[in-house]
Simulated assay, not measured.
Amino acid sequence: HILLDGRDVPETSALTYVDEIENFMNDLNDDSFDARIASGGGRMQITMDRYEANWPMVEEGWNIHVHGKGRQFANATEAIETYRNETGVVDQDLPGFVIAENGQPVGLIEDGDSVILFNFRGDRAQEICRAFDEGEEFDKFDRGNKPDVNFAGMLQYDADLNIPKRYLTEPPKIKYTLTEQLVKEGINEYAISETQKFGHVTYFWNGNRSEKFSEDLETYVQVDSDVIPFEQRPWMKSAEITDKLIEAIESGKYQFLRTNYPNGDMVGHTGNLEATIIGVEAVDLALGRILKAVEKVNGILLVTADHGNADEMYDKPKEGEKVHKAKTSHTLNKVPFIVYGADVKLKHDDDMGLSDIAATVCQLLDVKPNENWRPSIIEEMK
């Protein structure tokens, strides 16, 4: 059951992977063994919702993978090529499909089967895990006749919530996080984003933990994302996030506040240049408002990113090609690190990265950094 990408790899590279795995399975198959692709779809259309933004997307994937309810094709290549020819859709947005013979799905998930979710990253894996793992308490959608299967994830995606219950390998143990250190120092924190990136300022930020280190010192605020293609509303929830963030800044209750504006990433992944420009402009407007709030409270603003995306919207044509193809994957360009409101001299070192920011934050807050961290990006505070 294949979930196709086209976001972190070239936008129409699915057939490369389909060919590879089908050739591999063909070498395994004999009279007593029959491995094949049974269903699939794009990761932004079925199965792989995150942060409970769109459970119907998971329900559609469940019905396709488990019950074989979906448009039928003879094989995955036919499905992908048909959808592309009909609508020009890229891999991430491919509708779901079911592989069938004589009108019958070739690979329903049934009682006694083993199901392994080969996904390393946790955010888009958890909801489908819950659909397989949970009993009668599951209330997100009607699973129909739920098969009794032996389900496991590649690893445990959330140890706090025990998702999934069975897994193939231990997840990485992330310790010495910035929040742990700030909680020890009694720093009051505030984290906000819209649904699409809420886990990035909470779950991922705290080392793949869904639970807080301190209920008293950590405040989480989620703004519900619109369930709509990102290129149709590229401003997303930047204004609403900014309204609440400014209110929190001006309240004086918090010493460290963080947010993530998803626009450059989520809209950039669509490959739509016009929409991405609008998305970036929306974030520019938001930052302008935040600057004024930071100045008002005599605060310090740090601006950075974890990777590029909106900065490079087209791939260079390959030899013999004339058309620039939309680039939907992340870029490898360096990201900025900007300090506003503090008179500091920053290091200029190619070895600097995200892992240097924790000590930088502590230095600006005048608290002791963790001894296991990399050093601060600040060379001198004037």
Rank of each mutant, 00 (worst) to 15 (best):
L3W: 07
E11A: 08
L15N: 06
F24M: 09
N29I: 11
R43E: 06
R43Q: 08
T47W: 14
M48V: 05
P56N: 07
N75W: 05
A76F: 07
T82W: 02
G88Y: 01
V90H: 13
G96L: 04
F97E: 00
Q104H: 13
L108D: 06
L108R: 15
I116M: 14
I116C: 10
D123I: 03
D123G: 01
E134I: 03
E137R: 10
K140V: 04
D142C: 08
D142Y: 12
M154W: 12
A159F: 03
R166C: 02
K184E: 15
K184D: 15
E189T: 15
F204S: 03
V227A: 04
F230W: 13
I241S: 00
K244Q: 15
A248L: 13
G252P: 14
T259F: 06
G268W: 00
H269Y: 03
G279E: 12
V280S: 02
V283N: 07
L301N: 08
D306G: 03
H307R: 09
K316W: 07
G320T: 09
E321F: 11
K327P: 07
H330I: 01
K334C: 07
V344W: 10
K345M: 14
L346W: 13
K347C: 12
K347H: 15
C362G: 08
S376P: 13
E379F: 13
